[in-house]
């Protein structure tokens, strides 16, 4: 057997081994999480929230190729939905699932309302307008004291519960978030493979040519914006419920940039990449605790480095969940 043949025989098996390893680690992590100290579960919860945000924003940036720098606004809409509808602030105490639904709808509506005027613009203006929009939302929250509590935020939010089961401990949120992340990931992944997903890709590649084959680009982009905003808003509502406190500080421009960075580092357009990107973004600061201030500097430099050296990110676009599964079952 020649060297080449040996390699050819080994490679599929080793990539299968990688797939097995990824799955094994994921399952081991999930199984072990409930037994970890609360502190670590909280870290994993926040990892899952970032993955959820990444899945949402990736629809706009990765699939459709639009740079949205105001994503955090939708996150804020969700968080403040929960804060206002389940706290002493307005003395409303609606059930968690209902608020989740309201937040999802509000997110979609905000996304469409922002999208209608903005999506007709050329791509690069979009980045700056969404950035402005994110800032507008933050400034309004900061100043609308009677409603949002201003810079002090809203505290003493209700404990969440679903069908009588209380969701309060970090481990409860872990299970909730796991389910939501898996669902959102599945929807996003199937959307990408649908005809709408193909149209998004066409818009990303060449917007004019996409119009030329009959795609109503404004509508397709609106759909991307609305879906992404919905996911962001749901993430916000869960975030609010888990923190039981919201303030404008969580919704700064830097947060938007961090989510973009996470997608870029992991691999633009790929759900598995988002998981990798979020892991780096969230776990790195935990590992580099003593160098807390250096981490964002490091992340910024990593972003430049990756964009130049490996623009596809850590996980390439073509390596989606389907490939992983196919390798696992050995097809």
């Amino acid at each position: 057997m020649s060297v080449a043949e040996t390699l050819a025989a080994v490679r599929p098996r080793s990539s299968r081994a990688v797939a097995f390893l990824v799955f094994a680690i994921a399952i081991a992590l999930i199984a072990a999480t409930p037994f970890l100290p609360n502190y670590y579960i909280r870290v994993i919860d926040s990892l899952l929230i970032y993955i959820l945000l990444g899945i949402g924003l990736n629809i706009v940036i990765g699939y459709t190729g639009l740079l949205d720098l105001g994503f955090v606004a939708f996150y804020a809409v969700g968080a403040y939905s929960y804060a206002l509808l389940a706290s002493p602030q307005l003395d409303l105490h609606l059930p968690f699932l209902l608020i989740l639904l309201v937040a999802a709808c509000l997110g979609a509506i905000t996304g469409i309302l922002l999208g209608i005027p903005v999506l007709r613009l050329r791509g690069d203006y979009l980045a700056i307008v969404t950035l402005g929009f994110g800032e507008i939302v933050r400034i309004i929250i900061n100043n609308l004291d009677w409603l949002t509590g201003g810079p002090k935020g809203i505290a003493r939010l209700d404990k969440a519960s679903i069908l009588g089961i209380q969701i309060a401990r970090p481990v409860d949120f872990f299970w909730l978030l796991l389910v939501v992340v898996l669902l959102a990931g599945l929807v996003a992944w199937r959307l990408e493979r649908s005809i709408l997903g193909k149209a998004w890709a066409a818009i990303r590649e060449d917007q004019d040519a996409a119009r030329g084959i009959g795609i109503n680009t404004t509508n397709a982009k609106l759909a991307a914006f609305a879906t992404s905003a919905t996911i962001g808003s749901i993430a916000g509502a869960i975030f609010g419920a888990s923190q039981r406190f919201v303030s404008p500080e969580s919704f700064t421009l830097q947060e938007s940039v961090l989510i973009v960075l996470m997608i870029v580092v992991g691999g633009i357009g790929n759900i598995l990449g988002i998981v990798a990107g979020a892991a780096i973004l969230i776990l790195l600061p935990e590992v580099l605790r003593e160098f807390a201030e250096w981490r964002i500097l490091f992340l910024g430099l990593l972003m430049i480095f990756l964009i130049i050296v490996r623009p596809a990110g850590i996980v390439p676009r073509s390596f989606g969940p389907d490939k992983l599964i196919r390798r696992l079952i050995g097809k």
């Binding site: 190729g65 500097l297 992340l299 910024g300 990593l302 430049i304 623009p311």
Partner: peptide
């Protein structure tokens, strides 16, 4: 998209 993302990285690095 690439140079804009890169400039975001530069911005973040300079501020921090």
């Amino acid at each position: 998209l690439a140079p804009m993302l890169s400039s975001l990285g530069v911005s973040l690095s300079l501020v921090t």
